[in-house]
């Protein structure tokens, strides 16, 4: 399914309605006498902040119906932003309450109520910790696997203490159905976590793969071929990605997202091309043939229009080429003649992934290939430096601007330049598809 603005608008509206629902339920009759505006406002922020925290489990639940229209990478980016919003809502709840009425300081006073003060102080600490470990994970040298454990535990702790806090204060939930509402919301969040961590891995357990081939590519990248064991494998659309578990049980937290690099027409095996960038990817080259693997997916809306009349312009940097290779190989296998333009920025000729194959594809596909080299060899006549507006202006003439989809994938700095550039050139939002490496 392709990304649709209309569907995105529906999901966002539903999100706002569900996030605001707890406060609406709280205000339904019977209600106690109102306090000052600032106290009511702060309490409302707390309700909504906790609801946003609960919905974080939906965003990371990898539900294919929602992810198909929005793209799982977009949902995870929204999850990051929403987490920060929830943080400020809950912080606002605490500070505004205490400024509006200093008597509320008693909630954090161990002399007034030790368990309550400990729990609420711990939840505030957990909020700071979850934000800090997420935003600055790599600066702390925290591995992805440990971060996932810490993140899940802290998130559950915050939601659990939040619920206990609401039930214990009890101001707006005096009647049973209001208490039931909060319990159902919390059980729902817990179920979503169980779905992600237990039910999905169980499904994967029944569909194992084995590594059938490992190829060394240029620039410290490796291509892993995976063949299904005892099942028919996976069907995906070129440009999509999956979560890969290598040599571990599917219940392991050592699971990483990678784009498929093979043709979607290849039913025998699927391939991922992985560059040695992080703690896990540096070990990929040492994988043995026959290693057991599991795939969860496919996900992502970074996919070309099925109509071959729609052309594609790819603006790519470095290892961002992998999902594009899947598209080009698929177009080749389908003998498609759609208009294609690849603007590919790399460090040098020696480190350019798939260079020989792209040159071959230039002959079989209707492909215009613009290679931008940061460190070109002597006598290089092509584009040099980093992908820039000047280079894009030179190669994206009016002919290429119309009737095409634009796929942007590469380093953050390149994408931060290219995305607004395409909008300035008048490309409608729905024709610009971008995928960032850092989705986790």
């Amino acid at each position: 399914m392709k990304f649709s603005l209309k569907q995105a608008a529906v999901w966002i509206t539903l999100y706002v309605i569900f996030a605001a629902a707890p406060i609406v339920v709280a205000y339904l009759s019977p209600v106690p006498n109102a306090r000052s505006f600032w106290v009511e406002f702060a309490v409302g922020l707390g309700f909504v902040g906790l609801a946003i925290m609960g919905f974080q489990f939906v965003l990371t639940g990898r539900f294919k119906n929602i992810a198909a229209s929005l793209g799982l990478d977009s949902m995870l980016q929204f999850h990051r932003q929403a987490g920060q919003i929830a943080f400020f809502f809950i912080l606002g709840h605490v500070f505004i309450l205490m400024l509006a009425n200093p008597n509320y300081l008693a909630f954090l006073d161990p002399h007034a109520n030790l368990p309550r003060a400990l729990a609420l102080s711990a939840v505030l600490g957990a909020l700071v910790l979850i934000l800090v470990t997420t935003v600055w994970r790599q600066s702390f040298g925290l591995s992805y696997e440990w971060w996932r454990v810490i993140h899940g535990v802290l998130a559950l702790f915050i939601v659990f203490i939040g619920l206990v806090h609401i039930l214990q204060v009890g101001f707006y939930i005096s009647v049973w159905w209001k208490q039931a509402f909060w319990l159902i919301m919390t059980v729902g969040a817990l179920f979503l976590l169980i779905n992600t961590r237990i039910i999905n891995p169980l499904r994967m357990y029944r569909r194992p793969y084995r590594i059938s081939q490992i190829r060394e590519e240029r620039d410290e990248a490796w291509t892993l071929s995976l063949e299904p064991v005892g099942h028919h494998g996976i069907r995906f659309t070129p440009g999509q990605f999956a979560w890969l578990t290598l040599d571990k049980s599917p219940f392991s937290l050592r699971q990483h997202p990678f784009s498929f690099s093979s043709s979607a027409e290849n039913n025998e095996c699927v391939e991922f091309t992985i560059k040695a960038l992080g703690d896990f990817t540096k070990t990929v080259g040492a994988t043995k043939i026959g290693t057991r693997a599991y795939i969860e997916g496919p996900y992502g809306a970074f996919t070309p229009d099925p109509d071959p009349a729609v052309g594609c312009v790819f603006i790519v940097g470095g290892v961002g080429i992998t999902p594009i290779m899947s598209m080009l190989r698929t177009f080749r296998d389908r003998s498609e003649s759609r208009n294609l333009c690849l603007i590919y920025g790399t460090l040098s000729l020696e480190t350019t992934l798939f260079l020989d194959e792209i040159r071959d594809l230039e002959r079989t596909l209707n492909l215009k290939f613009v290679h931008v080299l940061e460190n070109p060899p002597v006598g290089w006549n092509g584009e040099r430096g980093l992908i820039s507006k000047d280079i894009l202006n030179r190669h994206l003439s009016e002919h290429y601007i119309r009737d095409n989809e634009y796929f942007v994938c590469g380093p953050e700095t390149m994408m931060d330049m290219v995305e607004p550039y395409l909008r300035c050139r008048g490309i409608p939002l729905k024709y610009i598809l971008s995928e960032r490496f850092k989705i986790v």
Binding site: V16, A19, F37, V48, I52, L70
Partner: peptide, 30 residues
């Protein structure tokens, strides 16, 4: 979906929710 728009959408949703909370609190007190 473009990253810049996701950030803007999230900030927009945040502001919208603050306004909703403020309006509901005001209606409660009024």
């Amino acid at each position: 979906m473009l990253h810049i728009y996701i950030r803007r959408i999230a900030i927009g949703v945040g502001f919208l929710l603050v306004i909703i909370v403020a309006l509901l609190a005001w209606s409660r007190v009024a």
